[in-house]
Computed example of a mutant assay.
Amino acid sequence: MTNVKRNGLVDALRGWSLFGILLANLLIFQYGIFGKEEISFFNLSSVDYGGYVTLKVLVENSFMPIFTFLFGYSLILMRDRLRQRERRVKWHLFRRFLVLIGLGVLHSTFLWEGDILFLYGMMGMLLLFFVNRKRKTILVWCVILFSIVTFVSYLGGGEEVPLMSEAKMTAYMNDMVNIYSSGNYQEIKNHRLNVDPMELSVGEEIAMVFFVPFLLLPMMLLGMYAGHVRWLDSSKMKRFWYVSVLFIPLGLLLKVSFYLSKEISGVPDMSLIGGSVLAIGYIGLFGYIYSRSQGSEWMRGFESLGKLSLSNYILQTIICTTIFYGYGIGLFGKMGVVFSILFGIILFIFQVIGSTFYLKRFNQGPLEKVMRLFVYLENPFRRNQKRPMNDEIKVS
């Protein structure tokens, strides 16, 4: 049996993407999942509004697709390792996705509305239909779904749709700011779970749920195809550079089209597909930097953070809700975008350092141990047992 060496670039890229996800999520932590789209309510300064637009263009919806890509990539790596150990592939993956769904339900119910674990777990169940397919089949489906998303984006898929009347939105925003900034834990939880500002018909809700897989599946399938051909080989420096040079400018242009479409008649809003295109460019750029500086302290730090991505993701929620919500410091809507970016950078640095020191003492993070327990049905706290393929026991 041949053991496959762990891919440090996959871990480092996962850690780096967690930084971008943190910066994007700070808009939700500070302004709410609906409030971040109604940012004019908060009367931002010109500097903060500039920071807001910067996050919307450079970060939001461009780092989550990296995680989505890695979810598919890791799925193929994990499948190969399960086959090497002669284990039941789909059954182990099913349990893994079931754990993600369970953690997602707990996360969104008791901590925060911006959870992604539940959605990833559900999408993982769908990917079980592709896990044993040939790479050409996966690529064909990837191209088809990307084409559909591009077509919808061209027709106005990124267009803003009013959730409610202006008067109702103002009332909702006032209520949300008051509760989130000064309410106790139970009040905030009740508001999060019971107050929904979206005025959608049953048909519109069904259509929205149906369309979600079309947004996520293309990057997941691209990741699965990349896992088949081992795209994330850190020795492929030139390929990474070419990808970054091509896709970053294109992705930025597509994302900026959201603002250009409001100013220039006839300019289509292609921001819906722009996030994924920019994410591919970011993957290429980070892969190029990693291949040039592999073994550096910071790259090892990114790797450590990536190995503990599930625990670090939940830790970000705990820290940020404590900072912004009323049962903690209560800075909801008060910190400002620029200072929240600085806060995110500091928090990320502490997570990199903390993850590095943690892995010098322990093999896995606490939630990674929980995942191992349920996926492999083995006691993760026994010292003298064969370690499973913990490369892939993560959010993605």
Results as ranks from 00 to 15, higher is better:
F258M: 13
C320M: 14
S244Q: 06
G50F: 14
I179G: 07
D115R: 08
F214Y: 10
R81M: 02
V99E: 02
N194D: 04
I341L: 06
R6T: 00
R361A: 05
G295T: 03
L22Y: 01
M224G: 07
L222R: 11
R372T: 02
L111C: 03
G274Q: 11
Y31A: 00
I66N: 02
L155A: 05
D233S: 13
T137N: 03
L305M: 10
E204Y: 04
L13H: 09
W141Y: 13
Q30G: 12
F339H: 13
L193W: 05
D175G: 03
Y290L: 00
Y31W: 11
F71V: 03
G274V: 12
Y290K: 01
K136T: 15
T109P: 05
F214L: 14
F151G: 02
P213H: 05
S311T: 14
L200K: 14
G326D: 06
L315F: 12
G8S: 03
L315T: 13
R192D: 01
M299T: 03
Y242R: 13
V47Y: 04
S45H: 10
L27H: 02
A279G: 13
L308T: 11
F146Y: 13
D196A: 00
F210I: 15
T170Q: 14
I116W: 03
Q385V: 15
E166L: 14
M371T: 03
S296V: 08
M208K: 15
G284L: 07
Q316D: 07
S181G: 06
I345N: 03
G114L: 04
I349R: 02
L272W: 04
L253G: 13
V256Q: 09
V202D: 02
E60N: 09
R95I: 01
R95K: 15
L315D: 00
F130R: 00
A167L: 08
P162C: 05
M270W: 15
L58G: 04
G284A: 04
F348T: 11
M371S: 02
V161G: 08
M176N: 04
Y49W: 05
V10T: 05
A167N: 12
G344C: 00
K255G: 05
G35T: 06
T150L: 15
L100T: 08
V267N: 06
